[in-house]
Nucleic acid binder design. Structure first.
Length: 345
DNA sequence: GAGCCGTGGCG
DNA sequence: TCGCCAAGGCT
């Protein structure tokens, strides 16, 4: 009985995919394990529309794992600038080097070896096995979770371990051994285009007649939402020093914590801390709020012009940045936002 | 298990 | 304006 239902489900999904699935995303063309891996990392917690241009720029600069492994971390972070979750970029680089040194430059095609690599967990490993090597594997990403929690009305927040284990088992039971790559892509397409979080297009869904949530008109309740927690608000004064050549002083952030390894402005807790150092001849840009996944940051940019770049003691972590001269480095979205504000004044 | 780790879009 | 969250993984 179970097997019949399983076959039924995957057949419906596969038939739908053949007609409605996405088959010409950049990483689906010239498909290689490298391109599949890169896309899977970029797509972690990030939507397709955001990733597309980053992916194109990245493979243009680093067309294969060897070129990526040889790059500097700053170059890699540069191509990740604005994409967020920068640990992904550092792990990506680390992974590329490991593939070169430990796997002869070829991505492994099994779950254990793939999961031993930085940045690759159970679902990403399965996606690579399925999509790149076309061997049977089961993924469980946000799309699949959304589809399955609705299909079987799975109660509880999917981030909860018990719920997640339940979903893994369900996912594995539904995954076919044949046409596995198509099925994997189909489930993600289904979740992304029809079984969306808001306004799901159930009428067009290939499994609508068996979907418990739809049959009870409870689609909105699934997946159950994450228990909410208030985000604290922090405040920071960012010192933007310009020298006579229009260069900007940036400091490389530590290898742990927010924006690790990226260049950013020096930060101070109070305006007094800046004026004690620089004097009171400064210009305040409008403060603004930047929101992270786990807290809000109220940013107060303070501009000091006409600095003498020779006067500031410079170590390896400091640079005077000029977009057209400075070698490529990683920047965060707040720095980009401030750059834009500077242009407007 | 729970916190950490970005960003932009949407309702 | 604001909370929510999108192709997760690491510690």
């Amino acid at each position: 009985m179970k097997k019949i239902m399983t076959t039924h489900f995957s057949k419906q999904v596969l038939d739908w995919y053949e007609i409605h699935g996405r088959k010409d995303l950049p990483w689906q063309l010239n498909k290689t394990p490298y391109r599949v891996w890169l896309s899977e990392i970029m797509l972690q917690q990030t939507q397709v529309v955001t990733v597309i241009n980053y992916f194109k720029r990245f493979v243009h600069t680093f067309p294969d794992v060897e070129s990526l492994a040889k790059a500097s971390e700053d170059e890699v972070l540069h191509l990740w600038t604005g994409l967020g979750y920068y640990a992904r970029a550092r792990n990506l680089h680390k992974c590329a080097k490991a593939v070169m040194s430990d796997f002869g430059g070829k991505f492994p095609d099994n779950q254990t070896d793939l999961e031993s690599l930085s940045g690759i967990g159970r679902s990403t490993a399965a996606a690579i096995i399925s999509l790149a090597f076309e061997k049977p594997a089961t993924i469980l990403d946000g799309n699949v979770k959304r589809v399955l929690t609705r299909y079987k009305m799975v109660e509880g927040w999917p981030g909860n371990k018990k719920v997640e284990n339940e979903l893994w088992e369900l996912a594995e039971n539904l995954t076919p051994k044949t046409d596995n790559a198509e099925y994997t892509q189909a489930m993600m397409d289904l979740g992304a285009t029809l079984c969306k979080r808001s306004k799901p297009r159930c009428e067009e869904c290939p499994v609508k007649q068996d979907c418990f949530a739809r049959l009870e008109s409870r689609q909105k309740e699934f997946p159950n939402s994450k228990p909410k927690k208030d985000k604290p608000t922090k405040s920071t004064f960012m010192l933007i020093q310009l020298d006579k050549l229009g260069r900007i002083r940036l400091i490389k952030r530590p290898s742990k914590g927010i924006w690790a390894g990226l260049y950013s402005f020096p930060e101070y807790e109070k305006i007094d801390d800046i004026e004690k150092l620089m004097g009171s001849d400064n210009h305040k840009l409008g403060s603004f709020k930047h929101t992270f996944s786990h807290y809000h940051l109220q940013v107060h940019p303070v501009v000091v012009k006409g600095c003498d770049s020779n006067e500031v003691r410079s170590d390896d972590n400091e640079i005077w940045y000029h977009p057209e001269v400075t070698e490529e480095i990683g920047l965060n979205a707040v720095v980009l936002k401030v750059f834009k504000k500077l242009k407007d004044i």
